[in-house]
């Protein structure tokens, strides 16, 4: 692990303290209040999603015809929906669908985009040309329209929505990885690795790839935010999570028909989407600044 000598403001005057790069990044990240706030938002929603069976006050799918469209009360903190289901219980279980969609879609995009970008940037030549034209073509199809088309042809379900969002996100990671590989491949240590006879796969995986990871981490965080928004959009259109399973997007789709009678049905899911997306965006922005070597 790289070790740098820096002045620690907490240490006695003039004492030079050696810190690992990881610790330095961590300290920079903690200094950014917006990044910490973002991390707290994300951690809260992750905890809610993981602990859903324990913290959910009611069964999210159980209808209660005596409690149809009741406003927030002590019994139902966020009110009830058009068939008497508890909105808070559906919000809690809906967090699972949103976070799962965000993480799984970005994992799919990383698993395809990073190897393709690595291959494209490292091999150059005709392979690079062909892969970049395919990437250009995918980038030319607006993200949501491509995701809608894929979800439409694959069939509406949460799994297919995640695949559609993942595939639509692939070109972003191809471009980013390729750009980073092109920059890293001309570094002296890569030349040195090549000069001592390392095979190409070893140079690409052991020497180039680790240096591409930091910007990928930042992009992955920001892409999770975009994927959560995309899943909510697809579910809103009826192409994601299917009823009666809860999802914030599908809750909003139903809520728009009852705006005059039950506005609370629309307010909470939208606020939750905003909070979790803002959380990932703030954390991603903070991570980018913390990983930037120009930042002190």
């Amino acid at each position: 692990m790289a070790v740098d000598a820096i002045l620690d403001p907490a240490a006695p005057a003039g004492v030079v303290v050696e810190q690992s790069r990881g610790k330095r990044i961590w300290r920079r990240l903690l200094r950014r209040r917006s990044a910490v706030a973002g991390a707290v938002f994300v951690a809260f929603f992750v905890a809610v999603a993981v602990l859903a069976p324990l913290v959910s006050p009611y069964d999210p799918a159980k209808a209660d015809w005596l409690q149809v469209r009741k406003p927030p009360s002590m019994a139902h903190w966020m009110g009830t929906d058009e068939i008497g289901r508890d909105v808070m219980a559906r919000m809690i279980w809906g967090a699972r669908a949103s976070l799962l969609a965000g993480v799984v879609s970005v994992t799919i995009a990383l698993m395809i985009g990073v190897p393709v970008g690595l291959l494209s940037g490292y091999c150059r030549g005709w392979i690079d040309h062909v892969l970049q034209r395919i990437t250009d073509a995918l980038l030319a199809c607006p993200f949501l329209i491509l995701a809608i088309a894929l979800a439409a042809f694959l069939g509406p379900s949460l799994t297919n929505a995640m695949i559609a969002i993942g595939i639509s996100t692939v070109p972003i990671f191809v471009r980013l990885t390729r750009g980073q590989v092109l920059a890293v491949a001309v570094e002296d240590y890569v030349e040195a690795a090549r000069a001592i006879g390392n095979p190409h796969w070893r140079i690409a995986l052991r020497h180039v790839f680790p240096n591409v990871v930091p910007p990928l981490l930042v992009q992955a965080t920001l892409s999770i935010a975009a994927a959560i928004l995309a899943e909510a959009s697809l579910s809103f259109l009826g192409l994601g999570q299917q009823p009666p399973a809860p999802s914030w997007g599908s809750m909003l789709n139903t809520a728009k028909n009852f705006l005059a009678q039950a506005p609370w049905m629309a307010i909470w899911p939208g606020m939750a989407i905003c909070a979790v997306v803002l959380g990932f965006n703030l954390f991603g922005d903070g991570l980018r600044d913390a990983l930037d070597p120009k930042e002190t």
Binding site: L229, L252, K256, A260, P269, C274, L278, N281
Partner: peptide, 22 residues
């Protein structure tokens, strides 16, 4: 700026309908 990128357009639309129309 950050809020503009985090608010889902369809939710903003629903909220505006709630205020300006309903």
């Amino acid at each position: 700026g950050l809020s503009g990128q985090s608010v889902p357009t369809f939710w903003l639309g629903i909220m505006l309908i709630l205020l300006f129309s309903v």
